[in-house]
Amino acid sequence: MGNMVMDWAALQTVVWTLTKIMALVVPLMLGVAYLTYAERKIIGWMQVRIGPNRVGFQGLLQPIADAVKLLMKEIIIPSGANRGLFILGPILVIAPALAAWAVIPFTDQLVLANINAGLLYVLAITSMGVYGVIIAGWASNSKYAFLGAMRSAAQIVSYEIAMGFALVGVLMASQSLNLIDIVQGQAGGAHQWYIWPLFPLFIVYLIAGVAETNRAPFDVAEGESEIVAGFHVEYSGMAFAVFFLAEYANMILVATLAGLLFLGGWLSPVPFLPDGIVWLFFKIGFVLFLFLWFRATFPRYRYDQIMRLGWKVFIPLTIVWIVVVGGMMQTPYGYLFH
């Protein structure tokens, strides 16, 4: 490969792409940090507490303080652990959580990679996140971690199917896998959004999204009261924090996808207001608020109930609705589903 000439243009492309990646990842990480703050504040208010209010004005510097604390802590590797895989676990969790963002459009211009099979790419990349969890749980050489990994693996694989079927409905309605085309198929005001014709699929997607990200009430993989912290019980310091970064980045990803696929993305809900990225952020914020609200409201599901909900309720429901959408498209009322 020595004779490969790295000319000036190629170098420029590389630098420019890296800059764009940084411009995506840095705000994302800030978003993650302040999502943890929002979570603690909102759940605090819901439970008539104050939430963090010591570090900075109204506790606004709390996430920074947490990050510094976690960075300073020692990373302990258990003596019986499989060293290489133990380190690899958190990496494999965070990598898909960030890589999936490559194809997410924020407006019709603002996207890192506008690819044709964008939706498929997101599905494929996010389906790899489960490896980090399994490997972390297995390599820790601990019963609790292993149980957490097993639960997580079964749960994520189960809900991925329902989630995939819910997205099949979206691509039937939009006739495209390109995320920008999907959003533009919903142009014309809030009544054109896919949430209305695909309402059952939206609900399935939202709940499956909560389950995929291992959030309450589906957080049996962590299950503090039964298996202490599940797959990441043996992790400390930054390695532990990486799991949390990935979980929150995935939450924001699911919220963004819900916004793009069902809620019209950056399109404005009413025709007389201009479209813009602000709408997308507003929709993401709304879905994220739902996530936090669920956590403050619902008790944890029993494990067999999770499996029943995924396999016996959601998958049949999505299949039925896909058939309904497909059938309706053949009738004169097909325009309702486009």
Partner: peptide, 23 residues
């Protein structure tokens, strides 16, 4: 399409169950 499906089906689902059993 084939490339992404390979990742989605084999990496994302089949091998997870494989690992599950092997572990």
């Amino acid at each position: 399409f084939l490339a992404i499906t390979l990742v989605l089906v084999y990496v994302g689902a089949v091998m997870v169950l494989f690992l599950f059993v092997v572990m």
